[in-house]
Design a protein around this nucleic acid. Structure first.
Lengths: 348, 348
DNA sequence: CCTCCGGATTGAAAGGTTTCACAAATCTGG
DNA sequence: CCAGATTTGTGAAACCTTTCAATCCGGAGG
């Protein structure tokens, strides 16, 4: 029976208190926790009783301190409100659950595109001596990542392919993705195609655009057939804006199809079309990128380039754990191939 | 100059090594870190030089062990892929950044509706001695939460209002939300209204439905005017399914408006309407709930009940930090009032 | 009866930081 | 030049767990 003094704070019980209560030594309590087989059933029962009695909660800090590393993985995501990244994170959770045998946690950190926040999170994670860091960085070639890796915390870059060779990475072939998107549009008979995105900044988007050009070339169409509508970011609002600009073009030069750098932009574009009574796909065919859930759920379901999101996450965790356990680790760069999901927005 | 032996692992340097390199005692290094004012500029510079030289990284486990508590907050979210929760999380980040003076981290954990995962995360967080736990629980009245709070880890329940009084909570008045949604529909002349959601399970949804009934009553309309279309969950697919069932009803009993328990369901419904060439709002007016970004971005922008999502998150963190610092803490239950955002989906 | 063996248990060290009482050095003003 | 105050710096204890060599015990074999 627990007797609690009226005024006394019920101070958190440690293994020492448990040992005292059970009438055993500290080492035995530790054995019950870590090597139950080494302890006779009788004493084990006694110790376990004492633990529940005293509401014992293991102190992870002390464990870690002794062990040197924590049993935590972290994913520093670029944008927590973009469904693409939350799906990647879901894949990571699956892999962590599967691999960790129940003692591996995945924590999510949202940098929200802010380099300062990203740096702050990375610093704290390093201080926590996490098992490893998964990250979709604001800038994949920032030196910070390399430094962390060099200091001994494994880093896996997700959905970007960095230049250096200080860490593993998992990404998707964006040039190919752009290519299949535009090839599809060309096959549907389109010969003037808008490209909507901020391709001047993000490497990603540049690749997709390059793939688009390649598809045009393969069909014997020149690069002038790609009409650039440049946005500042890749949000729904950017898509709306681009749609208005597109609608404002004279019919003689107006594209009959649009390839959007991601689905958010495509959804914005779709909305503008609905407002302006432009029919999709009759007046304008639209292809998005990422195939987020809302792409299929749109009023006119969107054709989109699907990336293996959960697979991306799973693989990233596997690479990370491999790096953390292997002794002579060889950094790998895994590249997945996206696939086109054709829906109503391009099918006449 | 760093001399690195060819084969030697550059073992992580601790404060001890830094102290040795700078020719000072351990205590001084600690002072440089924690009370720079107590150290003369000259020695401080020497110590700092040694730190960068040796690539010193503070060991958070050891700090925590000494301090008793970590400087980490965690939000255990119910569904990482629902934009509503990611927005709540964004509000939490803002508050944590503002309050923490740079040394407070917010980690996100996604229980994905799985009680087992939720329990696992809670256990680990408690072991980590986090500053506090923010949680949108699968079951707000599960005993686990109370136990954790009783053992000394502050808990704030977000977007649910639990029965007990062992912790603070932040929520939104769902009855009122349902009421304004349906009042609006009634004002638009609708007299038979569908309610789409899984109201048998989630308290939340039950409240919204009750608000709907209240609005009907206030307009002199009986509860039979609310047509229940029950779903299993609150996903886009559920909305699509409900839409088909609704369209299948004979015109004599078919509602002219639908109040959806969340925006995902509303988007699914909207999509079915588009497929079946039902005009929104002429054939069917739709009100959603949550006002996620995609609600405004839909082909027919959705009227929706907006919850102060970021505010919810900010307040939750503030309550948590208050509880963690105050001595005699009084648990509070904060309830926000939602507001109706009227858009095209209900305006004829 | 003694020795040896294996299983069960113990005790102490280690891990890196913070804190705090204390010592040393420097300064203030008389 | 001294008493006292102030500024710097020190050393050891404490935080809680894990690990590992050492000890203890009962029993088997001789």
């Amino acid at each position: 029976m627990v007797v609690r003094e009226p005024g006394a704070e019920p101070r958190a019980a440690g293994m020492k208190e448990v040992a005292a209560a059970a009438g055993v030594s500290l080492g035995t309590v530790s054995n019950v926790l870590n090597r139950p087989g080494r302890v006779s059933p009788a004493t084990r029962a006694r110790v376990e009783a004492a633990m529940t009695e005293l509401r014992f909660v293991r102190n992870e800090s002390a464990r870690q301190l002794r062990a040197g590393r924590s049993r935590v993985l972290a994913y520093v995501m670029l944008d927590g409100s973009n469904p693409f990244f939350t799906d990647v994170a879901a894949g990571m959770e699956d892999a962590a659950d599967a691999a960790g045998e129940g003692d591996l946690s995945l924590f999510l950190c949202n940098s929200a595109h802010q380099p300062s926040r990203e740096a702050a999170y990375l610093g704290r994670l390093e201080q926590q001596r996490v098992q490893g860091v998964l990250i979709t960085p604001v800038d994949p070639d920032a030196p910070l990542l390399g430094e962390i890796a060099r200091r001994g915390t494994p880093v896996v870059v997700v959905d970007r392919t960095p230049e250096g060779t200080t860490h593993c990475s998992v990404a998707v072939d964006d040039v190919y993705g752009g290519e299949i998107a535009v090839r599809h549009l060309v096959e549907q008979g389109h010969e003037r195609i808008a490209f909507i995105g901020n391709h001047t900044s993000v490497g990603q988007v540049r690749d997709r655009r390059q793939g688009a050009l390649r598809a045009l070339a393969a069909a014997g169409l020149g690069p002038d057939r790609l009409v650039d509508l440049t946005t500042t970011a890749l949000t729904v609002a950017d898509g709306r804006g681009a749609g208005e600009r597109l609608a404002g073009l004279p019919a003689s030069v107006r594209p009959t199809a649009a390839f959007c750098a991601n689905d958010l932009v495509a959804l914005g574009l779709l909305q503008t079309c609905a407002n302006l009574r432009m029919s999709v796909p009759a007046d304008l065919a639209i292809v998005g990128y990422d195939d987020i859930e809302f792409a299929a759920a749109a009023a006119v379901p969107l054709t989109s380039v699907r990336q293996p999101r959960r697979r991306l996450g799973r693989t990233a965790v596997e690479l990370l754990l491999a790096e953390a356990s292997e002794t002579g680790h060889e950094h790998r760069k895994v590249v997945f191939t996206p696939e086109l999901v054709v829906r109503a927005s391009t099918l006449r």
